[in-house]
């Protein structure tokens, strides 16, 4: 609500996104086109990085609904950004499991590496740092999401490494940053280490 200064006067989907939007609307029965409001907001965010009021009005027009109904959805879900974000939107989880596994260090490292606080964008427009609620990757806590990718099993050093790599224009490999494969046990397999097959006894 407060960042009116960012609001552009107009918004239009690019041809590519307009095509995708059409496909989403077509997924719903006739007269139920309003159901496509969430994917369309997502498309707008992918195109612009955030959802502007102008974008909401365009979407409201496309779906034949009141702009306020679109705004209700866009403000309800925290994943829709209501103000511009940097090229990389760094979202650090600080919920309980991540905190117990050391998200405080991750937060400190990210703040130090980027030189900004939560909710702020770096002056070069590259990064926005956000604090978010659980992103559902507790098994690999602590973690952060950068755009569409999860970086997991972080500590201060690996957090810094990921962010520095992004600064250099590289694309660090998403997933666990401590060599662990996906979410298998952290110290290697602990059960079923030997596979023995026995016939079932009667």
């Amino acid at each position: 609500m407060s960042n009116m200064t960012h609001e552009p006067n107009s918004f239009a989907f690019t041809a590519d996104y307009a095509e995708k939007a059409k496909a989403f609307i077509a997924k719903y029965p006739a007269g139920r086109q309003q159901s496509a409001v969430m994917p369309l907001l997502d498309l707008a965010q992918r195109q612009e990085g955030w959802v502007s009021r102008a974008a909401m009005e365009v979407i409201a027009g496309m779906l034949d609904m009141a702009p306020i109904r679109v705004e209700e959805v866009a403000t309800f879900y925290t994943m829709y950004n209501r103000k511009p974000v940097g090229k990389f939107h760094v979202q650090v989880c600080t919920n309980l499991p991540c905190m117990l596994r050391g998200s405080d260090d991750v937060v400190a490292a990210a703040k130090a590496a980027l030189g900004v606080d939560f909710g702020d964008m770096t002056s070069d427009g590259l990064f926005t740092l956000s604090e978010v609620e659980c992103l559902g990757a507790c098994v690999n806590a602590p973690m952060m999401q950068i755009n569409d990718d999860y970086y997991e099993d972080l500590d201060a050093n690996s957090t810094k490494a990921v962010l520095e790599a992004l600064k250099r224009g590289e694309t660090p490999k998403p997933g666990p940053q401590n060599g662990r494969q996906f979410s298998c046990p952290a110290g290697g397999p602990t059960s079923l280490t030997e596979l023995t097959f026995q016939t079932e006894k009667a």
């Binding site: 609500m1 009116m4 009021r53 009141a66 702009p67 306020i68 109904r69 705004e71 209700e72 403000t75 309800f76 879900y77 925290t78």
Partner: peptide, 26 residues
């Protein structure tokens, strides 16, 4: 929205931050 037919009010935000408001400029 229903009776008057001029949908300009809505609930913005969520949870603790939910506010009833009108659409900007409307």
């Amino acid at each position: 929205s229903e009776v008057a037919g001029t949908p300009v009010l809505g609930g913005l935000g969520r949870g603790e931050h939910l506010e009833i408001g009108r659409y900007v400029n409307a």
